[in-house]
Design a protein around this nucleic acid. Structure first.
Length: 239
DNA sequence: AAAACTGCCAACCGCCTCCCC
DNA sequence: CGGGGAGGCGGTTGGCAGTTT
């Protein structure tokens, strides 16, 4: 875009607010012709009076092919809960493992369904746990074992039966991973790397999704199958 | 019936990182 | 090397619809 055009756009002002069907059509035509990316040139090429960020967001969250509409399934809910327990508010990272769902959607879902359930006391405990992890990292040692189970992600929600059975299963497995790690006195940053490596490995060939789906769909998860990923994690962390 | 409240979701904002010149 | 632009990300807001009081 020339300097003059850029100046003119700012002078005239970008359009804001809800997108119209006409704008959607222009954006979709632009992407069909030029592909995704180079969002800042959408305005000059298509005539849309929207800035690049707005165009990208509209495409990613609404127009992109393959997006799923409607409520999240219990399986998707379980994945979100587990991955959030692992990674926190890494919405875009979590969204990569939910095909057809956007980070915005997951973020909104989380905020409406779970955020308010975090009570101040639990936040304090989580904070205490985080502080201890940081302290231990600074002193080159792993986290100390904490006997208080409520410091684990969503332990109380599990106790109170706030999650569906399928969600609970995956969540308890996640918590078990954390407990295992604490018992091994492992450095938390190393654990995070191991989990990421393990995840990349198993997600590449679909092993993880098969494992998760098999067990989410089952009323009686197969113990041997359930242990596979954690054995893999153990072997990775020994390297 | 209407006001207040709540849930939901699209979209914006500000910050950060990456990349190119 | 560093400055600036583009894109990505997480937090937040605003508005609409449904529900409750």
């Amino acid at each position: 875009m020339t300097e003059m055009m850029s100046w003119r756009m700012q002078e005239e002002g970008w359009r804001k607010g809800p997108w119209t069907p006409g704008e959607d059509k222009l954006l979709a035509e632009y992407v069909a012709m030029h592909g995704e990316g180079r969002w800042s040139s959408v305005a000059s090429c298509s005539g849309l009076k929207r800035n690049g960020k707005s165009c990208r967001l509209r495409w990613v969250n609404y127009l992109r092919p393959g997006l799923k509409k409607g409520h999240l399934s219990p399986q998707e809910e379980g994945i979100i809960i587990e991955l959030h327990a692992l990674w926190g508010n890494k919405w875009s990272t979590i969204a990569r493992y939910l095909p057809g769902r956007t980070d915005n959607e997951i973020k909104n879902y989380w905020r409406t369904h779970f955020k308010k359930k975090e009570k101040p006391l639990e936040n304090q405990k989580k904070r205490k746990y985080e502080v201890q992890l940081n302290h231990n990292q600074e002193h080159q040692r792993g986290p100390e074992i904490m006997n208080d189970n409520t410091t684990l992600p969503y332990a109380e929600e599990i106790d109170r039966g706030l999650f569906t059975e399928s969600s609970q299963t995956t969540l308890q497995e996640t918590n078990q991973m954390i407990i295992n790690d604490q018992q091994q006195q492992q450095n938390p940053s190393v654990m995070a790397q191991d989990v990421a490596r393990w995840w990349d490995t198993v997600s590449e060939d679909g092993l993880w999704s098969r494992f998760l789906w098999n067990n989410l769909d089952s009323d009686h998860p197969n113990q041997a199958v359930m242990e596979q990923p954690f054995q893999m994690l153990d072997s990775l962390s020994m390297n």
